[in-house]
Design a protein around this nucleic acid. Structure first.
Lengths: 333, 333
DNA sequence: CTGAAAGCGCTAACAT
DNA sequence: ATGTTAGCGCTTTCAG
C-alpha cells in the first residue's frame, strides 16, 4: 500500500507537499506537482479514504438509506431504478456509495449517528418518517436529500415528484376514453400515496363524478397486494371499467388478479400504472403509466446534494415533473 | 461525537481499557466492563469504523461490486434480487455494505486497489473476468466471493448455480410435452451462458435431436434483446414450437416480441425463462422457469465469506442446486 | 488486570 | 513555495 510518504521520499519532498500536489493545490509549483503526479501514477497510488475521513476531510462517499418495513426491497423495482440512477450520477462525480442496509427499521437518531460515524459527505434517504422523525431529521448537519418527501431545512432537501398532477393526467386520460367508473388501488398513509389519491379525487370531482368507496382499495405498493385487489374488484357486482393503480407493480398484480378471474385487460377493464418501470414496456399488455423521469430527477438529487456539500448551499424543496405514457393497457370503453 | 476517551474519563480509567471492555475482552474485570458498557450506552457511543479501519482492524464492512459493461444494472432484476438477499444476510451479522458503483469497467487491479483502501473485511463480486483477471484475482488476500464463476484460491471462493442441470430440466420438461423444435436464446461468452447452452445441447443430443443453428440466438440477457430474438424467431419459416431463454428477462422480451408478430404464448409457442425473478409469477402468461434458490445461495455466500474472514477459512468451489418451476408459459404441443 | 506509548495515512495550522 | 508539528479515534505492543 503506497502512501504519500513513499511518494514524498521518491520526490525528495514532504508528505504535505505531496498531499497538496495531489489535490492540485496552487501552493505547489507546477514543476513539483507534475513530478509528484507522475510518481503517484507510476505506483498506482490511491488516497486512503479512511485516513481522509478521520481527519475530517471529505470522504467522497455518500450514504444511501432505504428502509422498508413491510415491503421487500428487492421487489421494489422502483427504488432499485432510483438507486441505480443515483449510483450512476454519483459515479460521474467520483463519489462512492455506502449502502446502508439493515433488516430492522432503525430509529432515525441511531441511523444518523451510525452514518455520521462513517463520515459520509452526504446522505440520500428514502425512508418513511413520522412527525417526531421529521423534526429530528431537520436538525441534521450532514447534507441530506430525502426522496419523496415535501420537506426541507438548512441541510435537508426534499425531492419529490408531482404525483397529484401525475394521477390527474391519468384520470383525465381515462375520462377522455369514456370511463366513468374508475377505481383506485393503493391508498395508504405514505406521503406519495396521499398525493396520488388526492389527484384521483380532485379530478373526479372536477368531472362531477362521485367517489365510490367500494372502488377505493387501501394497500401497499406490492405486486401481491395488487393481485388481491384485482380479484376483489373483479368480484364486485358493479365493476369498474378502469382501475388506476398507484404503482406499476400494483398494476401488474392487478392485471394478474383480473386475469385469474377471467377478465382481460384492456378488453374488459383498463388498468393504469405509475412509475414507468422498465418492465412496463414488456408486460402484456404494455402499461399505460406515468414516467417519473427518474434519471433526471436522480441528477437533480445529486446536484442539490453536491450543492449542499461543496458549495455550502442550503436545503430546498424540489418538485420534479412527471409525464403520462399511454400504452396498451387502456382503451376506449 | 463521543469517543473512548470521553468514556475513559467518566469511568476513571484509560482508553485502552475502554476499547478492550467494549470488545468484551477477558483482560478486563467484570466490574469495570459493566461500568464501561453502561456509560457507553448512556452516551450512545458508537465506535468509529474509520479509525478502526485505519489501524488495520475489522471494519465490519463488505464491498459489493457488480460491473456491467453493456447491461444496465437497474434493469438486471436478477442481480438486484441477489443484492438484496446478500444485504439482508450481511445485516443479520451486523455487517454494512459498501456498494462499489462505477460507470466504467475498471481493470481488476484498480478495483482491488480501490477497494482494499476502503479496508473492507471482504468482498462480493459479480463481474465478468477474462483469463488475465482470473489470475490476478486468485492472488487476492482479501477474502472474496465471486458469484457465478467456477473458480477458487486461498482467499477466493466461487459460488455458482448448477446451470447445466437447470437447463437440462427445462429441456426435458419441454420434451415431455412433445416439443421437438426447441430454440435457445441467450448464447454468449459468459460462463453462465456457456453452462446453460451446454445443458441445452447435451439434453437434445441425448434425445437424438440435431441442433439447428437457426434456432440458436446469440445475445445478452437483456429484455430488449429478447424482444428482437422473439421477432427474429417468429419470422422463421420453420418456426420452433418452444423457446428456451437463458434468463427470465430474455423470456419476457421474447414473449413481447412474439406477441408483436401475432403469436401467443403458450398457445402458439412455449417459452421458458431462467432465474425465477419475482416478476415471473406476474407476467402473462406466468413463466415456467428455474429457481436459483437465491436467498439460500446468498446465505451460502455470506457464510463462506465469514468463514474466510473470521475463521481464516480457505476458498472453495461451491455449486448450488436449482429447481424447475412449471407455470403457464409452457404447454403440450 | 490495567496503563503508557506508538502509529495507521492523511490534512490543517503554523512555521520557514 | 515548501516543511514541521500535531492530531483525528482506535488498537496493538510492551510495561507495569
Amino acid at each position: 500500500m503506497v502512501t504519500i510518504y513513499d511518494i514524498a521520499k521518491q520526490a525528495k519532498t514532504s508528505a504535505v507537499t505531496v498531499s497538496l500536489a495531489l489535490r492540485n493545490s496552487k501552493r505547489v509549483s507546477e514543476a513539483t506537482r507534475e513530478k509528484i503526479h507522475k510518481i503517484a501514477r507510476k505506483h498506482g497510488y490511491r488516497p486512503n479514504p479512511l485516513a481522509r475521513g478521520l481527519v475530517g476531510a471529505r470522504t467522497k462517499t455518500l450514504a444511501f438509506v432505504f428502509n422498508f418495513s413491510s415491503v421487500d426491497l428487492s421487489q421494489d423495482l422502483s427504488y432499485m431504478e432510483y438507486f441505480h440512477a443515483i449510483a450512476q450520477a454519483a459515479a460521474d462525480k467520483e463519489y462512492k456509495i455506502y449502502f446502508h442496509s439493515s433488516n430492522v427499521a432503525l430509529p432515525i437518531e441511531e441511523l444518523i449517528s451510525d452514518i455520521s460515524h462513517h463520515r459520509v459527505d452526504g446522505m440520500i434517504l428514502g425512508t418513511e418518517l413520522d412527525e417526531q422523525e421529521r423534526k429530528i431529521l431537520k436538525e441534521t448537519d450532514i447534507p441530506t436529500v430525502i426522496v419523496g418527501k415535501d420537506i426541507c431545512s438548512d441541510k435537508l432537501t426534499g425531492v419529490f415528484t408531482d404525483d397529484e398532477d401525475g394521477i390527474k393526467q391519468v384520470v383525465k386520460h381515462l375520462l377522455s376514453l369514456g370511463h366513468q367508473r374508475i377505481a383506485f388501488v393503493g391508498k395508504n398513509n405514505s406521503e406519495t400515496s396521499i398525493a396520488r389519491y388526492s389527484g384521483y379525487c380532485s379530478t373526479l370531482k372536477e368531472a362531477n363524478i362521485r367517489i365510490d368507496e367500494n372502488l377505493v382499495i387501501e394497500s401497499d405498493y406490492h405486486m401481491d397486494f395488487g393481485r388481491q385487489a384485482g380479484v376483489q374488484l373483479a368480484k364486485l357486482e358493479n365493476r369498474p371499467s378502469a382501475i388506476v393503480a398507484a404503482s406499476d407493480q400494483l398494476a401488474i398484480g392487478i392485471i394478474a388478479g383480473l386475469r385469474s378471474r377471467g377478465f382481460k385487460v384492456p378488453e374488459d377493464i383498463s388498468v393504469t400504472g405509475y412509475d414507468n418501470l422498465h418492465i412496463a414496456q414488456f408486460t402484456s399488455p404494455t402499461l399505460t403509466t406515468v414516467d417519473l423521469l427518474r434519471s433526471e430527477s436522480a441528477k437533480t438529487i445529486i446536484d442539490v446534494l453536491f450543492d449542499m456539500i461543496e458549495k455550502q448551499g442550503t436545503g430546498k424543496r424540489i418538485m420534479t415533473p412527471v409525464k403520462l405514457i399511454v400504452r396498451e393497457s387502456t382503451r376506449k370503453i
